[in-house]
């Protein structure tokens, strides 16, 4: 009887303790990384490499996703609106959806997979092969060397990649409208400009900044606390992708509630 009653209680207790412990570790990592910002001589030379790795290398997958999203959006809009409202609203729907929602979220999720997994795997491998310990013995702050350049690169490059992807999505939506929907450029552009406000871009950039921060921080967190060998690194990479994807969706809703 005791076992029956205690087991769920123990489970909840253990789960709660682990969550609190994780929060503590995350807080420790965050304050350490903030403190490590002053060690510019350590993270500065590594920032450009990370910006290329996080940003430039992510452009192909982001553009690939945007191309198809733009086309589908135009066709979906046409399918929904035909006969009900003027067709130039296809431009409005493509522009608004791509810039404020689908561009940031779909690109963010794709980058959560690419950047989040590679960050957790790289840092995790360094952890389990004692390379992080080696950094410390060589008088390097591992947070300044590993975490700060990756997180800064995420914050700086996610908006660039996401804005580029959104632009590509709008362009392919426009191209699809011309070639597949028999719309004119003037119609599409009229619709695009009708509901466009500069704040849409600001909104997308704010979301992108937060996605970049979350994806790289979560990847570093799980990599930094990886345990064991290859299995531990795999677990870290998987968790990084799952947790950052969930947090991207939560943040997306949060920004919608706060800013719209």
């Amino acid at each position: 009887m005791n076992g029956f009653v205690l087991t769920p209680v123990e489970y909840v207790g253990r789960w709660s303790i682990n969550r609190v412990r994780s929060l503590g570790k995350a807080g420790y990592l965050t304050t350490g990384a903030l403190r490590a910002l002053r060690n510019v001589e350590i993270w500065g030379p590594r920032l450009l490499t990370q910006m290329v790795s996080v940003g430039v290398a992510s452009v192909p997958i982001a553009v690939f996703i945007a191309v198809f999203t733009g086309i589908v959006l135009a066709l979906q809009a046409s399918y929904t609106l035909t006969g009900a409202v003027p067709m130039y609203l296809v431009g409005s729907m493509v522009g608004k959806s791509m810039i404020t929602e689908l561009g940031p979220v779909l690109t963010g999720l794709a980058l959560a997979g690419r950047v989040g997994a590679s960050t957790a795997a790289e840092v995790g491998t360094m952890r389990v092969t004692e390379q992080i310990d080696a950094l410390e013995t060589l008088a390097y702050d591992p947070l300044a060397y590993l975490v700060v350049p990756r997180v800064l690169a995420g914050v700086l490059m996610f908006p660039v990649v996401i804005v580029l992807a959104s632009a590509v999505g709008v362009l392919t939506g426009w191209a699809a409208s011309l070639t597949l929907l028999d719309m004119s450029s003037a119609e599409f552009v009229r619709g695009l400009r009708l509901f466009f406000v500069p704040f849409d871009v600001q909104f997308a950039v704010i979301k992108s900044l937060s996605f970049g921060l979350i994806v790289t921080s979560v990847g570093c967190f799980y990599g930094f606390h990886a345990k064991g060998g290859a299995g531990g690194v795999g677990v870290a990479a998987t968790r990084a992708v799952v947790v950052s994807s969930v947090l991207i969706l939560v943040l997306d809703a949060f920004w919608a509630v706060v800013l719209l």
Partner: peptide
């Protein structure tokens, strides 16, 4: 503190079991 520890670590060389070279 971190600065003093880094100062001390310059006087210590550590040879890791599996070398821990940066790959």
């Amino acid at each position: 503190d971190v600065g003093e520890l880094n100062e001390l670590r310059r006087d210590i060389g550590y040879v890791f079991q599996f070398a821990a070279l940066f790959d």
